[in-house]
Simulated scan of single mutants.
Amino acid sequence: MKEIIRVERKRILSLRNFLIFSVVILIFSIFSSLGSLNNYNVYDSSGNIIISSTDNLKESKLNKHDKLLDEKTLKDVVDRKDKSKYLYNSNLVTLVASNFEKLVEELTDDDISNFYKQRLSNVKVNLGGTAMVDDIDKLASKGEELNTPLQLGYAEGWKNLNNDMIDFVTIIIFIVPFIILPVFGEDPKTRMKQLYTATKHGKKTLVKSRIIAGFEVSSIIYGVAILIFSLSKLSILGFKGANLPIQNSVNYLFFPYNITYLQQYLLNVTIGFMAIIVMVSITLLFTVIAEQILSSAVFVIFFLAIMTSLPNNNFILNHFFKNFLPYNMTNFNSYYIHPEIYNISGEIIPTYVLVILVSFIVFTISTTCTVVISNIKLASKLK
């Protein structure tokens, strides 16, 4: 069976095509990373660069700028003791300001001492409209578990990586189904038809081998693409900050759960992988039903079009259906910026956990249907 899987894997994606794909991903990743780097140039009112991106990041990476967001630090921010335009300082000022509805200079001593209480109130406001008040209170209470005062420091590599993975993984999801379309296509060069007609259990072995090969190819493509993209981003923007809480980013200050940038990255990678295998399982089901590659491609295009065109203004549709589609699963920021609330048997389940569980169920059902239909069709061909 291993040899059959190897042959099928090679038929789906040759080494030459895999190398070409890897080179394209590498070039894309480098250009994306350099584009992110250019965003850190600091300009004056005339549009001239006063701090280059490399100098900005080099200064902001220094350990002396790592600090706790305690009352002393907050007081220093209000008094504007550091007026530099370097990233480390602008991030700090923006983070503090985002917790209040007034200017930093207007913050009082009471505001400073109640910084984390105000954050908890903002967590509840941020969750508003997604569930019942009791459920919002339950999830918001998770915000009290945040390790305070917050540890601040440089983590731009991880911030950019986690944010840019949204578009990158979505692109991979759109590409992979078309790569695996030939899984159930006929190729006389491999003589696979002779295998299942010549042996007693050949048809079952062939079906299993083709399905395994399809998932192996998809997993390899995803794994290599993520590895190249991640190393490119982190090599250019820095590996520092993986252990920092994501709440030290203004985007995630009101996220209720206590996780680090590394944990966020691993969650994103896992969700992206689940989205890939769901998309692959559905594609395999399409191909085994349609049998012809062209017809299967039409099915896949139709499915992708439906996923991307569903309306965003219907909460019920989004909450119970759209959030679990592969295309929407890869909108990673939705899990951290405006997380939705799912109450199951009185327990609040994080959206990203429920998405992983549901996608595994869909993958299992789709794959089972593919195996059953494939065996039935192959058996009918032998009669």
Rank of each mutant, 00 (worst) to 15 (best):
V169L: 05
V169C: 10
V169K: 00
T170M: 15
T170L: 15
I171M: 15
I172H: 12
I172W: 06
I172F: 09
I173T: 13
F174D: 08
I175A: 15
V176C: 14
V176A: 15
F178E: 08
I179W: 14
I180N: 15
I180D: 11
L181I: 13
V183R: 08
F184W: 11
G185A: 15
G185E: 14
E186P: 08
D187E: 14
K189W: 06
T190F: 12
T190R: 14
T190S: 15
T190M: 09
R191W: 03
M192C: 06
K193D: 07
K193P: 02
K193G: 08
Q194G: 07
Q194S: 10
Q194K: 04
Q194Y: 07
L195C: 02
L195Q: 02
L195K: 00
Y196N: 01
A198F: 01
K200E: 05
K200V: 00
K200Y: 05
H201R: 03
G202T: 00
K203S: 06
K203V: 00
K204S: 05
K204A: 06
T205D: 03
T205G: 08
L206N: 03
L206D: 02
V207P: 01
V207N: 04
V207E: 02
S209C: 04
S209A: 13
I211E: 01
I211K: 01
I212T: 04
I212F: 06
I212P: 03
A213D: 05
G214Y: 01
F215C: 01
E216L: 12
E216S: 10
E216G: 04
S218A: 14
I221S: 00
I221E: 03
I221M: 05
Y222F: 08
Y222V: 00
G223Q: 00
A225I: 00
I226K: 01
I226W: 04
L227T: 03
F229N: 02
S230I: 00
K233M: 14
K233N: 11
L234P: 03
L234S: 05
I236R: 08
I236A: 10
G238M: 10
G238P: 13
F239M: 13
K240W: 12
K240V: 07
G241Q: 12
G241D: 05
N243W: 10
I246Q: 12
N248V: 11
V250Y: 15
Y252I: 06
Y252C: 07
L253H: 09
F254H: 13
F254G: 08
F255H: 11
F255N: 14
P256E: 09
Y257V: 06
Y257Q: 12
N258F: 03
I259M: 14
T260P: 15
Y261M: 09
Y261Q: 10
L262D: 09
Q263P: 07
Q263S: 12
Y265C: 08
Y265D: 04
Y265N: 02
Y265T: 04
Y265L: 12
L266G: 05
L267I: 13
L267C: 13
N268E: 12
T270D: 09
F273K: 04
I276F: 07
I276L: 14
V278F: 13
V280N: 11
V280W: 13
V280Q: 13
I282G: 11
T283C: 09
T283E: 09
L284A: 06
L285S: 11
L285G: 05
F286K: 07
T287G: 13
T287I: 10
V288Q: 11
I289A: 03
I289P: 01
E291Q: 06
E291R: 10
Q292M: 01
Q292S: 09
I293K: 11
I293N: 12
I293Q: 06
L294W: 02
